[in-house]
């Protein structure tokens, strides 16, 4: 079973927003679509979901299941005046999914929502809405999920929980998931494979590891008494309290880490500071 968009083209008012876009996603795979706002991510996902018609190209899904796709586009849109279970039931009945109490409870549990909560969705946080929207997308157990900007508007805790949920769905249930975002870090942490889209064109398809390298020019190193470190000073690091921002040296970040260890500086973490612009600029040239 696989989901593929082939040579998709789309224009709005003579502006081409998608140019010959192709991507694919296999079962159990988490595929990312990375791009800045306005790159064409939502339009592509709308075309994949059948909401918008493409000018050219096709979306092909090879599966024997009735409902092929579930998804969230732009933001989780729910009936604010209904509670979580009622939302599930309303959307479930429309597509003929099982909507018994047991069924709705199991969907709520699957996405980690409180099954006892009976107040309206109006009061829900963005994270809870995302989860409920995913539960709705999962109704009738489609083999593929399309999630457009699922991390935006979430607090760090919410981001982590959502990432865990996405990975569980892919690993444990074998669902193929297509995720879009403008957050390079989250994409690197979540996806197995990432497409980079810019100005309606796929400019790169890479593994997260390769993308980290290409998109990172600075690293954030946190540790104890960094201000005393000669290694950091020599590499031109900018030190603020327990954190130092250092440009990746030609010989590689791993050498700085090694030098710091030898020097006796205690390091807690070293995080690449990714920059989406870097990914885009490189190719634009």
């Amino acid at each position: 079973m696989s989901l593929a968009a082939i040579q998709i083209q789309k224009s709005f008012n003579n502006t081409q927003v998608l140019k010959q876009v192709s991507l694919h996603c296999e079962q159990g795979e988490i595929v990312g679509l990375l791009g800045v706002n306005g790159a064409g991510k939502s339009t592509l996902f709308k075309i994949i979901m059948g909401l918008v018609s493409a000018d050219a190209g096709e979306v092909s899904i090879t599966t024997n299941k009735g409902k092929m796709l579930g998804g969230i586009i732009e933001k989780p849109a729910l009936y604010e005046y209904l509670n979580a279970a009622e939302n599930l039931r309303a959307f479930g009945k429309i597509q003929g999914a099982p909507v018994s109490d047991a069924a709705t409870t199991s969907y709520l549990e699957r996405v980690g929502l409180d099954t006892k909560r009976s107040d309206r969705v109006k009061n829900y946080s963005m994270g809870m809405r995302q989860r409920l929207a995913i539960a709705i997308a999962l109704l009738n157990d489609p083999p593929f999920l399309v999630l457009d900007e699922p991390f935006s508007g979430l607090d760090p805790m919410g981001v982590t929980r959502l990432r865990t949920l996405i990975m569980e769905l892919a690993r444990e249930r074998g669902i193929g998931i297509l995720v879009s975002s403008h957050l390079v870090d989250e994409m690197i942490r979540t996806c197995d494979r990432i497409y980079v889209i810019n100005n309606g064109k796929i400019i790169r398809e890479d593994t997260p590891r390769a993308l980290v390298e290409k998109s990172t020019s600075y690293y954030l190193i946190s540790g104890e008494h960094l201000e005393r470190s000669k290694v950091l000073r020599d590499n031109g690091a900018l030190i603020q309290g327990h954190t130092a921002r250092v440009k990746e040296p030609p010989k590689g970040i791993e050498n700085i880490i090694k030098d710091l260890a030898e020097e006796g500086t205690k390091v807690f973490s070293c995080v690449p500071e990714t920059d989406i612009k870097k990914l885009l600029d490189v190719v634009d040239e």
Binding site: I72, I73, E74, A77, Y79, F91, I94, Q95
Partner: peptide, 18 residues
């Protein structure tokens, strides 16, 4: 406006039927 029409359309129901 709320976008729920999108959510509905993503359930796989046909536009005509809805």
């Amino acid at each position: 406006e709320a976008g729920t029409l999108r959510t509905v359309m993503m359930t796989g129901i046909s536009k005509g039927r809805y």
